[in-house]
C-alpha cells in the first residue's frame, strides 16, 4: 500500500462520508477506554478528498473513539485522492480481515457497495476476487437481491429480525406489502421458522381473498394485535398465528372448536385424553390413558365406560361437521 504515515487534525476528518464503510458498527465504549489508556496502536487509514479534508477508508470506530476523547490530532495512514474505489475498498477489507473474519452483514454491505459501483453480479464477483474476498456466487447473488428490496426489509435483515431466506421470499411482494411484513417482524421478532410460517399464512390469505398482504394486515383484527402494546410480544405472536390459522382454515378451525366443545362434555379424568385424527381426514380417534396405579387405571376404565354412552361422543364420531359450514 502506498500510504503515508502522518498526523491528521480530527477536525478535517468527515465521518459522514461512508463510502468505504461496510463493517459492523458496534459501540465504541471499550475501544475508547483502551485508546485512552494506551493510545492508538493501529492508526486508521484515510483518503484525502479533492477539497483537502479526509474520508475514512478503514477505522471508523477508531476515529470516533479519538474524537470522543477530544484528540485534536491522530496518527493516520493516508492515501492520495487519486486512488480509485476498488483500491481503497481492498485496503479496507485487508485492514479488517487481517484482524478477524468478516461477518455476514459486512460481506453483504461489501457486495452492495461493489454492486453500486460495478452493476452486475459477474463484475462484483471479479471485484471480490481482486480484493481477496472469497464468496460463493450464489451468496453474491442473494446479497444483490437483498439490496433491491425495500429499505424496511433491508433494515430488518441488517438488524437480524428478518432472515436471509425470508427477505428473499418477500421479493415478489409489492413494496407496501413487504414493508408491512417488515414492520410486523420488527414488532414481533419471530424466529426464522415462525417467519416462514407467518409469511406463508399471509401469502395464502392474500391469495385466497385476491388482495395484497398489506390489505390483509390492515384489517381490524390484525391491526389490533399489532397495536396492543399492553400485551407482551409472545402473547401477540400467539394471537397473530391463531388469527391467521382461523382465517386460512375456517372450516377446519371451526370443526376443531366443535370437537373440543364436545370433548369437554365427556368428563375425561386426569391422565385421559381423546385425540382426533389429523385434520379429521382419517376416521380413527385415539384415547390416551396415563396412569401410575391400578386404582387410577380402574377409575379411568369406569370413566371410559361412561364416555362410551355419552351422546357427545356419538356427535364426535358422527363427524357431521360439514352441515355447520356455510362457506361456499
Amino acid at each position: 500500500m502506498q500510504a503515508e504515515h502522518t498526523a491528521i487534525d480530527t477536525a478535517f476528518i468527515d465521518l459522514s462520508d461512508k463510502r468505504y464503510l461496510f463493517t459492523d458498527q458496534r459501540g465504541i465504549d471499550t475501544l475508547a477506554d483502551s485508546v485512552g489508556r494506551v493510545g492508538l496502536i493501529n492508526p486508521p487509514i484515510l483518503q484525502m478528498r479533492q477539497n483537502g479534508d479526509y474520508r475514512v477508508v478503514s477505522g471508523f470506530r477508531r476515529v470516533s473513539a479519538c474524537i470522543r476523547l477530544n484528540f485534536r490530532q491522530i496518527p493516520a495512514r493516508t492515501i492520495g485522492s487519486e486512488a480509485d474505489f476498488l483500491y481503497c475498498i481492498r485496503i479496507a477489507v485487508a485492514d479488517n480481515a487481517s484482524a478477524r473474519a468478516l461477518s455476514l452483514a459486512e460481506q453483504r454491505r461489501l457486495v452492495e457497495k461493489l454492486y453500486d459501483l460495478c452493476g452486475s453480479k459477474e463484475a462484483v464477483s471479479s471485484a471480490l476476487d481482486q480484493i481477496g474476498v472469497f464468496m460463493p456466487g450464489e451468496l453474491v447473488e442473494k446479497f444483490i437481491r437483498i439490496s433491491t428490496l425495500p429499505p424496511a426489509v433491508q433494515e430488518g435483515y441488517a438488524e437480524n429480525y428478518i432472515s436471509l431466506n425470508t427477505a428473499l421470499a418477500m421479493e415478489s411482494m409489492s413494496r407496501a406489502s413487504a414493508e408491512a411484513v417488515a414492520r410486523l417482524f420488527e414488532i414481533l421478532r419471530p424466529t426464522v421458522n415462525r417467519q416462514k410460517e407467518i409469511l406463508g399464512g399471509l401469502n395464502d390469505l392474500a391469495g385466497r381473498q385476491g388482495i395484497t398482504i398489506e390489505s390483509v394486515l390492515r384489517s381490524r383484527e390484525f391491526a389490533d394485535i399489532l397495536e396492543a402494546m399492553d400485551i407482551d410480544r409472545g402473547r401477540r405472536m400467539h394471537l397473530l398465528r391463531s388469527e391467521i390459522y382461523k382465517r386460512r382454515y375456517p372450516a377446519l378451525s371451526s370443526a376443531e372448536a366443535e370437537f373440543f366443545r364436545h370433548k369437554n362434555n365427556l368428563g375425561l379424568e386426569e391422565g385421559m385424553d381423546l385425540k382426533p385424527p389429523q385434520n379429521f381426514e382419517d376416521t380413527t380417534y385415539t384415547v390416551i390413558l396415563r396412569f401410575s396405579s391400578t386404582r387410577q387405571l380402574c377409575c379411568q376404565a369406569e370413566t371410559l365406560g361412561r364416555i362410551c354412552r355419552n351422546p357427545d361422543l356419538e356427535v364426535i364420531l358422527k363427524r357431521e361437521i360439514e352441515d355447520q359450514q356455510d362457506l361456499y
Binding site: D204, R208, P250, A251, L252, A255, F280, E281, I321
Partner: peptide, 20 residues
C-alpha cells in the same frame, strides 16, 4: 385455486378439508 382450504391428506397430497 391453490389457496383453498387444503389439508395434507393421508397419501401426502393436498385435499380439501373432508367435510367440504
Amino acid at each position: 385455486i391453490v389457496y383453498g382450504e387444503f389439508i395434507k391428506a393421508l397419501d401426502g397430497k393436498m385435499r380439501y378439508f373432508k367435510p367440504l
